[in-house]
């Protein structure tokens, strides 16, 4: 099979898979599927800076929260449709990414991760203390209008499912195109070896900034979607460190730096978390323990993630190995 034919087959299978959930009779199940795909979307957004660019960000909840709060505040206070608020949030998150990234990009490895984690924590504490404007720890409610698709809300879950599928498709396309672009090549080079990348004329800071801003903007759009889907946001839901870790772990477990790996990570981890939550009866922190455990297992077995394990299986069974690949 040529890579193109294989890509086509994977694409067709994905489209088919996306229609199936609509046949489910239970709104609860469709909600779970929608949230899973939202996480897939977030993992793909994180992938741009964290996977392709190799900069381990543990602060993406900040951008998610900025997106949710920006659109909700604009809607509740000024009646601006969250569809527009989504873009305002994305722009604001991109700006925040530049402000956080510029001083932090000189830090490498764990220090960069810690700096992003700290930046997100500062934002969370600031929001928790802004009782007047942002509702403090209790958060903000989105004004209920029932069936108003132009105001980004609807009583039917299918509406949100359709929106998240479109967003996911956009995120997949951006990752696919990025990996084939000049910026994508530069980011992969930076991930591999910064000094060697520098020697080939790559402006490291500019490449990282571009990736971080794009990643943040997409993440913020996810935050707006979440606010409209749940109709309520609060700092502990949209700005928590747990969320930042979840997004990163999904991408890493699935396969960082690849197009389908991050989605695969979400498809595996979110249902696993849901099952574990029921089995363990709501022990606080059980979901984070599960994430840690799965992360350890996958990293020990194959650091390139589950997508690599599946691809190796596919190559072994599906097609004869190429003669000059070895």
């Amino acid at each position: 099979m040529t890579p193109l034919a294989r890509g086509g087959a994977v694409g067709a299978a994905l489209v088919a898979a996306m229609v199936v959930p609509l046949a489910t009779p239970s709104p609860y199940a469709l909600s779970i599927v929608t949230l899973t795909l939202l996480y897939g979307y977030l993992a793909l957004s994180w992938n741009i800076i964290g996977g392709i660019g190799g900069q381990l960000s543990l602060g993406h909840a900040a951008y998610f929260g900025i997106g949710g709060y920006a659109s909700t505040l604009l809607f509740v206070q000024f009646g601006v449709s969250p569809w527009f608020g989504m873009f305002a949030g994305a722009a604001l998150a991109a700006l925040a990414a530049a402000l956080i990234g510029y001083p932090c990009f000189r830090l490498r490895g764990a220090y960069f991760a810690l700096a992003t984690l700290a930046a997100a924590m500062i934002l969370k504490i600031a929001v928790e203390n802004s009782h007047g404007l942002l509702g403090g720890p209790r958060g903000l409610e989105v004004t209920l209008l029932r069936d108003a698709p132009l105001q980004f809300q609807h009583t039917r879950k299918e509406f949100y499912y359709a929106v998240v599928v479109v967003m996911l498709t956009i995120a997949l396309s951006i990752n696919y195109l990025l990996l084939r672009s000049r910026l994508g090549f530069h980011l992969v080079a930076i991930r591999n070896d910064q000094d060697a990348a520098l020697a080939l004329g790559i402006d490291i800071t500019r490449s990282k900034l571009a990736a971080a801003m794009l990643s943040a903007a997409l993440t913020a759009a996810g935050g707006t979607f979440y606010a409209q889907f749940v109709m309520f946001i609060s700092p502990d839901k949209v700005l928590s460190a747990n969320l930042s870790v979840q997004i990163a772990v999904m991408c890493i477990v699935g396969g960082r730096g690849t197009v389908f790996g991050p989605l695969l990570g979400a498809l595996l981890l979110l249902p696993a978390e849901e099952i574990a939550r029921r089995a363990l009866g709501g022990i606080v922190g059980a979901d984070m323990m599960l994430y840690g455990l799965l992360l350890m297992i996958v990293m020990r077995r194959e650091p390139r993630g589950v997508q690599r394990i599946l691809r190796d299986l596919w190559n072994r069974t599906g097609a004869p190995r190429s003669v000059n690949a070895g």
């Binding site: 992969v188 070896d193 000094d195 020697a199």
Partner: peptide, 8 residues
């Protein structure tokens, strides 16, 4: 000391 981009 050669510096290939190992993943690529």
């Amino acid at each position: 000391i050669v510096r290939p981009f190992g993943d690529m």
